[in-house]
Design a protein around this nucleic acid. Structure first.
Length: 295
DNA sequence: GAGCAGGTTTCCT
DNA sequence: AGGAAACCTGCT
């Protein structure tokens, strides 16, 4: 839940459960005594949430079976990650919400992305239950003023949200269009939205449209692929292409296994990060002919 | 308290 | 094409 797929889940009940909000639903999830997943929702929302749960958690998808289709038999790195992260799932979030959340995510850490989402929901979202509000619709965001969005802590992203909202307004059927399109078509369409580049487009498709060919390349994956697959010095677009070629049509699932492993290790020690940075520095120094040291 | 972050755009060479 | 720099804000 804290894996960076969705940003509206938080621990509740002394950390024994998670509470999440999506669409018009709010639910709590915990692991039961026998290891089974239990969920609950406010009584008045129970029916609606129950109907939405399966879709959100992609209950119809057997991720273990999908993971088995990945090339782990010839890839020890991947094999190890799959063994460690066996229960991994890819959420199927409402497409518009995924787009909004990841549009806010650029150059930000998870806690701040969560803050931005809360602020947007609090200011523009419809009430779901008690003080809990949903993320705003894109139609509502199109009505918002950029200054109001900035007040939600979006910074320069506020302009992108506003511009994207206006562009989406011109294409009312965009969600269905994305769902029906091929990965490549959907990716290119999304990446043409203001503030949406290749990484965010891939995240939206992977977590909001179940397009598993998407292979988001962020700094974590860039580092993981550099270190574990010998791709030092490769650029994000190249790594993305490698990922799709190497891991196949389920590359996005492989990405999540690698990503989870890398984040876990990154939290334990920053050594790898430092080394990588030094390598980059050296590379830069080599390619840069001294041209005035301004500053 | 300067530097940086789970990127993208824009402006350069 | 490909590399920097700029863009906001909160956290370390």
């Amino acid at each position: 839940m804290g894996g960076g797929q969705a940003f509206r889940w938080r621990r509740v009940e002394k950390g024994e459960a998670w509470q999440g909000v999506w669409g018009g639903a709010v639910a709590r999830v915990r692991v039961g005594r026998a290891g089974e997943v239990e969920w609950s929702a406010p009584l008045e929302l129970e029916e609606r949430v129950g109907a939405a749960m399966g879709d959100y958690f992609a209950a119809d998808t057997d991720f273990a079976a999908l993971a088995d289709q990945l090339p782990w038999r010839t890839d020890d790195v991947l094999k190890k990650r799959i063994q460690t992260w066996g229960g991994l799932r890819l959420l199927r979030q409402p497409l518009g919400e995924a787009l909004l959340a990841f549009l806010c995510s650029s150059a930000k850490r998870i806690p701040h992305i969560m803050q931005m989402c809360e602020a947007l929901a609090g200011r523009f979202g419809e009430p779901v239950w008690g003080s809990v509000r949903a993320l705003p619709t894109w139609a509502r965001l199109a009505e918002a003023h950029e200054s109001e969005l900035r007040a939600c802590g979006l910074g320069y992203r506020a302009r992108f949200v506003k511009l994207t909202a206006e562009k989406l307004k011109e294409t009312p059927g965009w969600e269905a269009m994305i769902r029906g399109a091929s990965y490549a078509e959907a990716h290119d369409w999304l990446a043409a939205l203001p503030g949406v580049g290749p990484k965010i487009a891939d995240c939206v498709l992977l977590f909001g449209a179940a397009k598993y060919a998407a292979f988001p390349v962020d700094t974590w994956i860039l580092r993981a692929m550099a270190e574990r697959y010998g791709l030092r010095g490769w650029r994000p677009a190249q790594v993305a292409q490698f990922g799709r070629a190497h891991f196949g049509p389920l590359a996005g699932l492989a990405q999540q296994f690698l990503f989870s492993g890398e984040r876990k290790e990154g939290k334990m020690g920053r050594k790898g990060r430092k080394e990588d940075k030094e390598a980059m520095e050296q590379k830069r120094a080599k390619g840069t002919k001294e041209r005035g040291v301004g500053r």
